[in-house]
Design a protein around this nucleic acid. Structure first.
Lengths: 200, 200
DNA sequence: CGATAAATTAAACGATGTTCAATTAAAAAT
DNA sequence: ATTTTTAATTGAACATCGTTTAATTTATCG
């Protein structure tokens, strides 16, 4: 075939991203090939390169989409509570659950850093920042007397713990006999952090 | 050539691991090939498969070695202090520094989980556990009244934070304008955790 | 309808991990 | 010493990978 124009370039882009996300979910990043993606969208491998620069670029765009849904989940969890501590707990659990239910997606997002030569699109940074901002907002509510610098550091401190626990749990590196150790960890993390934060 | 017997099988194994570690340090996991390793040790690719099952197995053994040096660094840092809090701080900083100076090594260790079908050698678990034990010991000294269960969870809570900060920092996902944000994060993490831990 | 332009294909390229029969050299036996 | 056996290493092959590009096919425009 030649010129088909079944889809606009934007449609194709979204089609490819969706197909890739599906494949990643099923098989994990390392098993997804260009040829699989092409077949899934009903085209030949070569076509993908007229829409994206290369396979890495496709993965990065998948990550942008993943971050959007992760943000949405955290934001919704947050809104279900009035008290800051409840919001923080809910967000942390949402984050943990996302990592647990969408293992492959989470791995592509955080555990497979792109080769150094590929530039990360700014869109990714914006989204991670806004995730941090959700936490910052709750921390401000929790203790209004803390300066902005410390709020920024505090949010990253707290989330390093949540993120770290999610990562260790996902890769089975928590090595605890207690079951649901990851949840216990996050419980302790938050109660201790919040406790200290109020005192600050 | 045929039978060479320049080295015993054990020597070959160590030779391969060392060569692979060097290549990983230089280029990162994703750029290391079987052919490169073979050339580095002065053999042909096929030989590697008489010593290791496959490339993944080689990487796993590299990880065992990496964990040993990481443990050694933490253990040495710990011994430089008498007070538990000082030991914990020193260990955390050593961990952070290792991740920062040996990016590629740390990535292979924690951020590139092996495909699900490969079995992780028990040696890895043993070593991660002993790292946790270092932290557990200091936590016990810090507050002897805490039960064993909570010590276990506590060590993993604290280290999820350290590990998470190291990972986020390494992949440039901390997104803070403050410089040395990772150190600030770990500072806050530890002081807050220790503070709460004493109160427990 | 014919010419132009653009999208898609098909085939090729070099490189990858892995396998295995053939080859080589060391060790054992005569 | 020479021959036989045994085991280590090679070298070539295989299927598959990401990527490039000339050729082809279709849509669009004059």
């Amino acid at each position: 075939m030649g010129r088909r124009s079944d889809h606009t370039k934007e449609e194709l882009q979204q089609l490819i991203i969706d197909a890739t996300l599906d494949l990643v979910k099923e098989q994990g990043v390392s098993n997804v090939t260009v040829r699989q993606i092409a077949k899934a969208v009903g085209y030949t491998p070569g076509m993908l390169y007229s829409v994206f620069e290369n396979l890495q670029a496709i993965f990065l765009h998948v990550n942008v989409q993943s971050l959007d849904t992760l943000f949405a989940k955290c934001d919704r969890a947050r809104k279900k509570h009035k008290d800051p501590e409840g919001s923080i707990r809910a967000m942390a659990m949402a984050y943990l659950k996302f990592a647990q239910t969408n293992t492959h997606q989470f791995q592509l997002l955080f555990q497979a850093p792109p080769p150094e030569d590929v530039v990360r699109p700014m869109e990714l940074g914006v989204r991670i920042r806004s995730l941090f901002e959700l936490v910052e907002d709750e921390l401000k509510k929790l203790n209004a007397s803390v300066c902005n610098t410390n709020v920024e550091i505090g949010a990253r401190t707290l989330w390093s713990g949540v993120h770290g626990a999610a990562g260790l749990r996902m890769t089975n590196q928590l090595y605890s006999d207690k079951k649901n150790a990851d949840q216990l960890v996050v419980e302790m993390l938050i109660s201790q952090f919040v406790d200290s934060w109020k005192r600050l």
